[in-house]
Design a protein around this nucleic acid. Sequence first.
DNA 1: AAACTCATGTAAGCTGTTACATGATTAC
DNA 2: GTAATCATGTAACAGCTTACATGAGTTT
Lengths: 183, 183
Amino acid sequence: MKLGKISYVILGAIGAGPRSGYDVKALVDRSTRFFWAASYGQIYPELRRLAEAGLIEGEDASQGGRARTLYRLTAAGEAALRDYLRAADATCEVRHEGLLKLFFSDALDEPDAALERVRALRHQHAEILSQLRDIAATAPDGVPPARRLVLEYGLGLHGWAVAWCEDVERRLADRAPDVERGT
Amino acid sequence: MKLGKISYVILGAIGAGPRSGYDVKALVDRSTRFFWAASYGQIYPELRRLAEAGLIEGEDASQGGRARTLYRLTAAGEAALRDYLRAADATCEVRHEGLLKLFFSDALDEPDAALERVRALRHQHAEILSQLRDIAATAPDGVPPARRLVLEYGLGLHGWAVAWCEDVERRLADRAPDVERGT
DNA sequence: AAACTCATGTAAGCTGTTACATGATTAC
DNA sequence: GTAATCATGTAACAGCTTACATGAGTTT
């Protein structure tokens, strides 16, 4: 069976302890979505595939009338996860519409087009930053160190981006008075 | 006709002057791929769709036996591009495998697993940074200001990321001697 | 009683990549 | 003459999202 990236998201999520599909989705939405999102439409079919391949095994954990299956890694699943994590290669793809709009904003030949776009970019990064701060503030004790590191990375990166936008906004705003003074 | 994100990449690329599908791909590969990639498999069919919808028009620019079509924006195409660029909303999706591996690296219970992953992350960002520096060094005069701004953003962001990795690497490397000293 | 969270899943469709196919022109 | 670049396109497939469907338990 061929494993894709989503397989490893699930193996990684389950690696920290038994989880249901719902739990995996909750972890993704709280944490990994900032750098790797996943939907139920991927998670549930993939859990089945991984179980069929013997990388995870499910155990019924229904309570009363509410169905629930907890999955845990098998030895094969642990090995697959470790091999993946040890391999150095890693892709990085970004679809950043804010940058796309800024890039093409010269097509609007309004003098403040770029400034407006940088402002929008700042709002975008500030929104993510505020979500990350919220996560940092509500994080329970005992968050594994690598996960904390990734959160720190996110806080730092989006903080940098907000500061960059503010700086550019000042630079661009300073241009207008210059023009009025005729310099 | 419904326009997707790729439609606007093409409208934006053509907005700066008549271009062929090949030209659009070259611009994407040189510039936008860092925040929005596109393949021939999207570009050529989309050019046809946009032409059928009357947003761009093609002009035959074949030379001898080499076929070539130059596209330019129609008035409708210009309007569609402007409307898009003025709308404030913008999505941002990231698929960053380096962060994913770092996030789950506690599953490898080797003491230096996270350190190794941060090193790999630094290499990844350093590679992109070097590509961006190359672009900055070879950029001709007269690059539109907004495009320069986006390049600056990329240089700054990946520069920040490399510095962050270096800092974390130092922190993680300092831990080992502490353990040996028994503190 | 309504709203919310827990819980599992599918089907249709959109987006995008990869690999292939073809051929002309230009630079070495 | 051969390798690189210019130039256009398609078909199969992979990956992912959205919307829908269903129902139990919990909180207000």
